[in-house]
Computed example of a mutant assay.
Amino acid sequence: MTKNSFLEDSKSLLVIIILFFSSCLLAQQNTPTPKTQNQFWRNVQFGGGIGLGFGSGYTDIALAPSAIYNFNEYAALGVGLQYKYLKQRDYYASHLYGGSVIGLFNPIHEIQLSAELEQLRVNVNLDGSNSNSQDYWNTGLFLGAGYRSGNATIGARYNVLNDKNNIYGSAFMPFIRVYF
């Protein structure tokens, strides 16, 4: 074996050893595990409501998506959007849209208490007269309680800001709330 061939063989062996160990070192890199990834989205739940009501010349369509952030097993805070279309044939058509902020408290797993502040823009167009059309804001503060099972809660809420000009027929309203 000549001196040149020995040097070339040694260089080749050294390159192979370096490549082998460098690939082993790269395999030991710290990659994010699911535990170290962003925990925020693990605590977010999405839900909302869809409503359809039809009667003799009456239409009621509602869409209300929402999201909550669970701070722990007892408390959550969230936001929601709402759109509602109401029409009574030969009388009026109305569009309601706005948002809400909701706080949920679960003193025990089966019981859910809630407080929701809702702000809606109301546009009412009375048929036959543009002068009687109305545009105004409506605010509601609902306090509620319900029975919770899994992701669903059934209960009732009461609008403590209810007055005779309120858009709702009653201050007391039942609800079903679902978050996934």
Rank of each mutant, 00 (worst) to 15 (best):
L7C: 12
E8D: 11
E8H: 15
D9K: 15
S10H: 11
S10E: 10
K11A: 13
K11R: 15
S12C: 00
L13P: 09
L14C: 14
L14R: 13
I16G: 12
I18C: 09
L19P: 02
L19I: 00
L19R: 09
F21I: 04
F21L: 10
S22Y: 05
S23W: 00
C24N: 12
C24E: 14
C24H: 01
L25C: 13
L25N: 02
L26A: 12
A27K: 05
A27D: 01
Q28E: 06
Q29A: 10
N30H: 02
P32A: 14
P32E: 15
P32C: 04
T33R: 15
K35W: 06
Q37F: 10
Q39T: 13
Q39N: 10
Q39S: 06
R42I: 05
R42G: 02
R42T: 08
V44R: 08
V44A: 03
V44Q: 08
F46W: 12
G47I: 03
G48H: 07
L52W: 04
L52T: 05
F54I: 08
G55E: 02
G55I: 07
G55V: 05
T59Y: 11
T59Q: 15
D60A: 10
I61T: 10
I61L: 14
I61D: 05
A62S: 15
L63Q: 04
A64P: 09
A64C: 05
P65T: 04
I68T: 12
N70F: 12
F71Y: 03
N72E: 07
E73V: 05
Y74P: 03
Y74C: 09
Y74W: 04
A75T: 11
A76L: 11
A76D: 00
A76V: 01
V79I: 15
V79F: 14
G80V: 03
L81M: 06
L81I: 04
Q82T: 01
Y83N: 04
K84E: 03
Y85I: 05
L86V: 00
K87M: 09
K87N: 11
Q88D: 01
Q88R: 10
Q88F: 06
D90P: 03
Y91N: 07
Y91H: 07
A93P: 03
S94V: 04
L96R: 09
Y97M: 11
Y97T: 14
G99C: 06
S100G: 04
V101E: 11
I102R: 14
I102G: 08
I102K: 13
G103M: 00
G103C: 08
L104W: 11
F105P: 11
H109N: 14
I111N: 04
I111K: 05
Q112E: 10
L113Q: 00
L113K: 07
S114C: 06
S114V: 04
A115K: 10
A115V: 07
A115F: 04
E116C: 08
E116Y: 09
L117G: 02
L117E: 09
L117N: 01
L120N: 13
V124Y: 13
D127T: 05
G128Y: 04
S129K: 02
S129V: 08
N130Y: 15
N130I: 12
N130C: 09
N132S: 13
N132T: 11
N132K: 07
N132M: 12
S133C: 03
S133R: 09
Q134P: 12
Q134I: 13
Q134Y: 09
D135N: 15
